[in-house]
Write a protein that binds this DNA or RNA. Structure first.
Lengths: 388, 388
DNA sequence: CGTCAACATGACAACGCTGTCATTAAATCG
DNA sequence: CGATTTAATGACAGCGTTGTCATGTTGACG
């Protein structure tokens, strides 16, 4: 046997040597270097990141105690805590996410799922989520998808299980799809919803509510104050609750001023530039022509502006246009667009922190803090497109 | 001792029971259920994902062989391979990323680092990268950052080491910053660069090259063909190589038609709407007034359009405007903008696949496939803003 | 039909952390 | 101030992979 193994090919022999050598180095480092910052440079200039073990050794405690410190378990004596924190600092220790994920039940990864053609919105959302993630040690998996796909429920569930996600951030329209929500509930998956509305949904999970109704009311009110009474409304996708809320706000504001709601002035569409263009063409043909348009978002509004101009209409003199969302390009049309600004990055942060809180409270069975919704109301921003 | 431990608090006792119970269940599942699809539902409806172990057992091989199959190591007999693949299918096995990351040297995570205010570009890039990642089992970490920050090099290096990234995708301007590149090289970090140029950079790492020069040449040529000879050029940030390439292309096209390059017609700026607005104001004051403008990107072009209109100029009759990039909003201005279209999503895919290939070839020391650059040339898209 | 590569496969120790439970130190109480 | 609870800490076994090395197995060759 031994003679045979001596005849094995050179490659394997060399590997064996290397292996032994590494063991030797590890042994030496463990027994000789004591309080030296392992994290710097090792023999051969190989960077060896600090591990929980080296921190424990440096601080003179067990690895479990270090684990307690980094997980904020709270059952560590102040003196010990300080020692450990010093060690962490000194060694520039960063917990290995893979190891934590493997050892623990859930991964420190959140998923952001969206189906939204608005690039600016997505970028702002990502920014807010990332900010919050970084300060809590979570990572973010982004997942653009097609909400209309038949397979969307499976797709999401698979993603959660295969990436072992700790939780999901859902923005509209996914946050408003019952089949998605119930599938997640069934599998006990944590999620936070960002959605349109003003009342807390009946759910044990957190939500961030955007009061589109109130903002749409304010926009409509503003148009009325500018002297308009024939105000057209261009809807986005009816699958988005926001469309409905905005329409309701529009109607309510009209009613409050005793202006009858004329259903012919309400045009259906999607959240797209094209909808705006097409709607503008319909609007110019109406008689009497509306003097103002409230478009469900800035993209539609920009399209409407485009269409109005193609038809030789002056904005705002002949047609006032208001959008919604405060996309950068609402400032980049001529004239600039009146709109409602929502603090997207703030909303994202708020949602993310709610989600993380929810995940944490789930881990500790007892600690069922009341889940509270958070509320935001987009603010009216008056620009050139409605100011005669 | 024993009596003492019997008096321990109830909580700990219960946990001990639970622990034993789980062990029992595991034991049973291992010794009784043989070829049953463990992955479905376990006692108590708890979903237990298949592991490499269950696959091995199902297929009647060792876990190492399964590992060989999922890593495509190629040293598995066809018959065995098939057995294992069947087992994987049957159990719906998905390798646990955390475990792979922990056991292996590098994580299956790529980083996309960017500092770019153009939301559409970022979204398209993300989409392409994600597509490629999904089909190769990688994950994506996105990292928006500030390239002008003093600390940018440290920030990136820290990110790579703390998330144990396998590689980085760099888009401009980060892909063109020597200090960033050399820091990454020093630490032997794999990256792929997307950058402006037409010649392969001197590097052992892959690049994706965008031939801005050629595209800018084409745009300028188009303007000349429309009868323009006084063509202003509005630069983006000079820190972007693309700005320089585009300017060079512009100059070369002029020279080729014997039109002298007038440096007064070249305006400096940043890749922003504001730059366009301000430049338009300077342009209308020039005498003789330029009849065409080539803006370094669509955002500047949109700003120029805005500024021109503010000054009562008709586009394209009095001033033709061309942009660059084919952002969606180049289609959403009135008139629509002539521009150069780059297939951003394709570029992202190409870059990502190059990176993954590079990472793989690094793992196997011998397999040094030649690193080849990939080339893209943005294509001229003629729209209303330059067509009298 | 023994010999010896080359090929195929397996046993087992890492990887760095958290969960479980045992143990020790500190606090509380009768 | 000893008994007993409670707080703090530690020892150690996983978690699901991959890397290392050893051990079959096969096939070509003399």
């Amino acid at each position: 046997m031994t003679t045979l193994s001596l005849n094995r090919n050179l490659h394997q022999r060399l590997q064996a040597c290397k292996y032994l050598f590494i063991k030797l180095l590890n042994f030496l480092s463990e027994h000789k270097f004591g309080k030296i910052a392992f994290s710097f440079y090792f023999a051969f200039g190989v960077h060896v990141p600090a591990t929980i073990k080296s921190v424990a050794q440096y601080a003179g405690v067990s690895i479990k105690t270090v684990s307690r410190v980094i997980n904020n378990e709270g059952t560590v004596k102040p003196a010990t805590l300080e020692k450990v924190q010093e060690a962490i600092e000194a060694l520039d220790y960063k917990p290995n996410k893979a190891a934590r994920d493997l050892a623990g039940r859930e991964n420190f990864v959140l998923g952001y799922v969206y189906d939204n053609p608005n690039a600016y919105y997505i970028i702002d959302m990502q920014k807010g989520i990332l900010d919050e993630c970084r300060s809590s040690g979570y990572e973010l998996l982004i997942h653009p998808c097609n909400a209309a796909s038949d397979n969307i429920v499976n797709e999401l569930v698979n993603m959660v299980s295969s990436a072992r996600l700790a939780g999901l951030i859902l923005s509209p329209p996914l946050s408003e799809m019952p089949q998605v929500l119930s599938a997640l509930d069934e599998r006990n998956i944590c999620y936070v919803r960002i959605l349109s509305g003003s009342t807390t949904p009946n759910s044990s999970l957190p939500s961030v509510l955007i009061d589109d109704y109130k903002a749409a009311y304010a926009i409509t009110e503003h148009l009325i104050e500018q002297g308009h009474s024939r105000i057209a409304f261009i809807s986005g996708d009816m699958a988005h609750q926001s469309t409905i809320e905005r329409q309701e706000g529009y109607k309510a504001a009209l009613k409050a001023r005793d202006i009858p709601v004329d259903n012919q002035l309400i045009l259906n569409g999607t959240y797209s530039f094209e909808t705006g263009v097409k709607s503008a063409e319909k609007i110019v043909k109406m008689a009497p022509t509306p003097t103002a348009v409230f478009a469900c978002n800035d993209e539609i509004a920009a399209g409407t502006l485009f269409g109005a101009r193609m038809n030789g209409l002056d904005v705002p003199a002949q047609l006032a246009i208001a959008g919604f969302e405060d996309s950068p390009f609402s400032r980049q049309t001529y004239p600039t667009l009146t709109t409602a600004a929502q603090p997207t990055t703030e909303i994202a942060k708020s949602a993310t922190s709610a989600l993380i809180q929810c995940i944490r409270s789930r881990k500790k069975a007892g600690n069922q803090d009341a889940i509270r919704s958070r509320f935001f109301t987009p603010q009216l921003v008056i620009r050139q497109s409605t100011k005669g």
